[in-house]
Structure formats: C-alpha cells, structure tokens
C-alpha cells in the first residue's frame, strides 16, 4: 500500500487531490460527495469585494427604477428589511460546508481595497476556514503602470494580510510575470505559505455574427498543465513555499507529474464537473496503481523528483524556443 499523503500550507492532507472551486464546492451535499470520493481538501469559490459593492449599488438602483416616472412607481417592489448582498452569504456557505465535511476547507478572496482585503480575510478566518487563498489578479491595462509597481502592490498586500490573519495563506498567481522566480520569492518572504499556479483568466471571445465580445468559459484539458508544470519544477527548492498546480489536471498520471515537478497538491474542477465528484476515486486509484507498479512507496518520496534541480538535464526546462524543440525530433 502506497502512502498518498502530502503536506500543504502546513496541513497534513491524505492525498494531493484537492477540489477547486466549481458549482460542486458551493453546496454541502456535493462537498460531501467530493469528500466521500476521496479528495483531501476543498477550495471555495472566491469572495469578490468588487461584486459585493456592485451588487449593493445595483440592488439599490434597480429597486428604485422608474421612480421618476410617476408617483405610484416610487415603490413598485415591496420593501424587505434585509438583503444578503454583503459577504454574509459567502461566509454562511463556508460555515455550512465546513460543518458538513471533515477535510480542510480553504476560503478564497479577491479584494479591491486594502481595507476590504483585510476585513474579509479576517471574516473568512472567523468563519472557520483552514487556510486562505488570495486570488489576486489585476489586469494591468494602464501603460503608465510599471511591472515593479504592480509587483510591489502584491507584496505589500500579502504582507499586510499576513499581519492580520493567523491561518495559512496561499497566493494564486497569473502566469504573466516577467521574472516569476524573483517575484515568487518576494511573496514567500512577505508571508505566503503557498503559491497556486496559475489563475485561469476568463478569456473573452468574439462573436462574429453579432460583432460582440462574449464571455467564453471553457473547461480545461490536460495540455494546460504544462505551463504550471514547468514553473513549479523551476521554483521547487528555490522558493520556500508550497506549490499547488491548478488547471489541466484530469487524471491520476497528471497528479503524479505535478507532484514530481514539486507540487504539494493539485486542484481539480473541470474533471469533476465533466464526470462528477466520484471521479476523484478513479484518479486516486490510478495514482495508486501506477505507484505500486513502479514501486514508489509514498507521494513524499517522489515529490520534486523531476524538478529542475533534480533532473539530469536542467536545461530541458529552459527550452522555450521552437527551433530547439524541433531539432530534438
């Protein structure tokens, strides 16, 4: 019997298969199903500060629509005492899921203001989250903003939150940083216990019939894990943080590759959405069978075994050029 356990953010997990945010992680029943199938932890969807602000303003605006039209239009819709447009809905879901499972549950947060980040981070901690993932993304569209200014903002934010919360913190990153290893080290020094690679940004598409920019959310495939695989392999052993690979993990063999690169865990959403929560059991079974066949005794044994530091030809990770890839055929 192989030992599948792993450690991530200082927590001992029974295996490296973590369920990442999807509709399945938003309800106690489906969270339980994921736990039963064997996942070792659950990452909640993000609490978006911007959405909370937007929703409150929009609700106010919509409730008073048309009030300028005539007297009877001033109160079309009955008045409720309370609306759950604040963070309370999110926190209540977190509490419910926490109550319904025994595995660790990680909160996730996307803030706008420093005050908001800290306030909601504390609330997520108080609601019982075992760790907090900071889903920081700022799409830099302003040509006046330099990369170092942007990186400093991230680092300051992590350090500010670190001072205010006690639970472990992971930072979810986008792949669009010029000097990722340096930035990753600065985040770790600022207090990040783990780095999650990478955020899958919503990529707008064009509808050629209507000439409109349309949202296009597609489920991942295994090819997508190559990007985080390379970067975890490069960062492992050089940056003192745990790593999670997110995006593109679909099979037990994908999980094994991630661990060999140096990841402590992999987080999975698309595969569970496609095949149901029960798919976690198959993934674990596949891992187990492969490891038994190849006579691995534990996940810890193979963790980082194919990181850049550990392989015979470290330059393989630096081959980025198309010409070189072609010549290797």
């Amino acid at each position: 019997m192989v030992d599948l356990s792993s450690t991530y953010l200082g927590l001992k997990l029974k295996n490296p298969v973590v369920a990442s945010s999807s509709p399945l992680t938003q309800k106690p029943e489906t969270a339980q199903a994921l736990e039963e199938a064997g996942v070792s932890a659950i990452v909640m969807h993000s609490l978006f500060e911007e959405q909370i602000i937007h929703e409150s303003l929009k609700l106010h605006e919509d409730l008073s629509r048309g009030a300028e039209a005539f007297a009877e239009a001033m109160d079309y819709l009955p008045t409720y005492g309370q609306y759950s447009v604040g963070p309370e809905t999110y926190l209540e879901t977190l509490r419910k899921i926490k109550r319904s499972v025994n595995i660790p549950v990680f909160g996730s947060l996307n803030g706008v203001s420093t005050g908001g980040w800290i306030e909601y981070a504390q609330k997520i901690q108080d609601a019982g989250a075992d760790a907090l993932e900071l889903n920081i993304y700022y799409l830099a569209t302003d040509p006046d903003l330099t990369s170092s200014e942007l990186e400093n903002t991230y680092v300051t934010l992590v350090s500010d939150i670190r001072k205010q919360v006690d639970i472990p913190i992971a930072v979810k990153l986008s792949p669009f940083f010029t000097a990722l290893p340096n930035f990753a080290r600065r985040l770790a020094e600022a207090g990040a216990d783990g780095l999650v690679l990478f955020n899958r940004f919503y990529q707008p598409d064009f509808d050629l019939e209507t000439l409109e920019v349309t949202p296009n959310l597609v489920l991942s495939n295994s090819n997508e894990m190559r990007l985080p695989l390379r970067w975890v392999a490069i960062l492992y052993g050089r940056v003192t943080a745990d790593f999670a690979i997110t995006g593109g993990i679909h099979t037990g063999l994908d999980v094994i590759k991630a661990v060999m690169a140096g990841a402590s865990v992999t987080t999975i959403a698309s595969e569970f959405l496609l095949r149901g929560a029960g798919r976690a059991a198959d993934i674990l079974k596949e891992m187990n069978a492969w490891m038994e066949e190849k006579e691995y005794t534990s996940v810890m044994q193979m963790k980082g075994s194919m990181s850049q530091k550990a392989v015979a030809e470290p330059a393989a990770f630096e081959r980025a050029n198309y010409m070189k890839v072609l010549s290797s055929y």
Binding site: E55, L59, D62, L63, L77, Y80, Q82
Partner: peptide
C-alpha cells in the same frame, strides 16, 4: 430582473 432577484437575495 429585480422582481425575481430580490427574493434570491432575501430568502434564497
């Protein structure tokens, strides 16, 4: 539409 959404926000 608020006529539907307001219920979701008050009694989910």
């Amino acid at each position: 539409e608020t006529r539907y959404r307001m219920l979701l926000l008050s009694d989910e």
